[in-house]
């Protein structure tokens, strides 16, 4: 590698208000290729909202997001004009940073295989045969190939989430967004999903993960962002955040979270 690459994603002063409730008050963030960043913080501080603004499931009200140097939204500081990229650009960006949801959100009328093929065919315009090959590959990576012909309602939570991860992987993503991927799972199923995410990290996948599982964060994150009051209150390398010299408010949060 010759020198540092430009970031995959940069976020500057991102703001979002829900009916007068200022949830994001200027979020700054950047993410580099191969980086695993975890977003932690108390409930209701806007972690999900940050992810949902990155792929424009929610429309931000201000700030700047760039994805591989391309502006997804931007504002002119002088004239105060905020602009969002046209739908085509946003759709292309979403396909390259798919999201894994807390509640899986698999397409319930489609089999596991069809779930993983869908985005490839509809969005990336891959041929069916190619898409199925790739789907098989992705399902194998998450250990769900034998369930290819099952419908979502025939799967356990952990299995559903692994399929959802395969669905994201199939898009050949540059970045995967995870919003509390294990929060809706029974405790004994958490490991299997975390294991899959760990495998992805070993393969160098770039990931932005919102989670409350501190032990998981400690074991996987390169960077940790602590979210509070609608801002990233602290950021740092995982080693520092979990080290003895962690910022006091993070220490307090960890003690409450569990330690």
């Amino acid at each position: 590698m010759t020198g540092p690459k430009p970031p995959v994603l940069t976020v500057r002063q991102l703001r979002k208000t829900f009916q007068g409730n200022a949830v994001l008050r200027g979020v700054d963030l950047s993410l580099h290729e191969g980086e695993i960043a975890c977003l932690i913080g108390p409930s209701g501080t806007g972690k999900s909202t940050i992810l949902r603004c990155l792929n424009f499931l929610e429309q931000p009200d201000g700030g700047e997001i760039t994805f591989f140097g391309q502006y997804l939204c931007a504002e002119d500081g002088n004239s105060n004009i905020f602009r969002i990229a046209p739908p085509r650009v946003l759709q292309a960006a979403r396909a390259r940073m798919p999201m894994v949801f807390q509640h899986f959100n698999l397409f319930s009328h489609r089999t596991v295989m069809e779930n993983v093929v869908e985005g490839q065919v509809v969005v990336l315009r891959r041929g069916r045969a190619e898409a199925r090959d790739r789907a098989r590959d992705c399902l194998a990576r998450v250990g769900m190939l034998e369930r290819a012909d099952f419908y979502p309602d025939q799967l356990s939570g952990g299995q559903k989430q692994r399929v959802a991860i395969a669905r994201a992987l199939a898009m050949s993503p540059a970045l995967i967004l995870f919003d509390e991927p294990t929060s809706a799972l029974d405790p004994q199923l958490v490991q299997e999903v975390q294991g899959v995410i760990r495998d992805l990290s070993a393969e160098g996948m770039t990931m932005l993960i919102v989670t409350h599982e501190m032990r998981f964060v400690r074991s996987i994150a390169h960077t940790v962002h602590f979210c509070e009051g609608g801002r990233i209150a602290e950021s740092g390398a995982a080693a520092d955040i979990f080290g003895p010299n962690a910022p006091p408010r993070i220490q307090t949060f960890m003690e409450v979270a569990h330690g």
């Binding site: 292309a92 798919p98 959100n105 397409f107 969005v123």
Partner: peptide, 26 residues
């Protein structure tokens, strides 16, 4: 299910595709 709609959007589907592929069949 609103979640499935969001999943479709987050894969980069256009609104028409979301309708035709996910919402209408269900």
């Amino acid at each position: 299910d609103k979640g499935q709609r969001e999943a479709a959007i987050s894969l980069g589907m256009s609104p028409v595709a979301v309708y035709c592929r996910v919402i209408i069949p269900q």
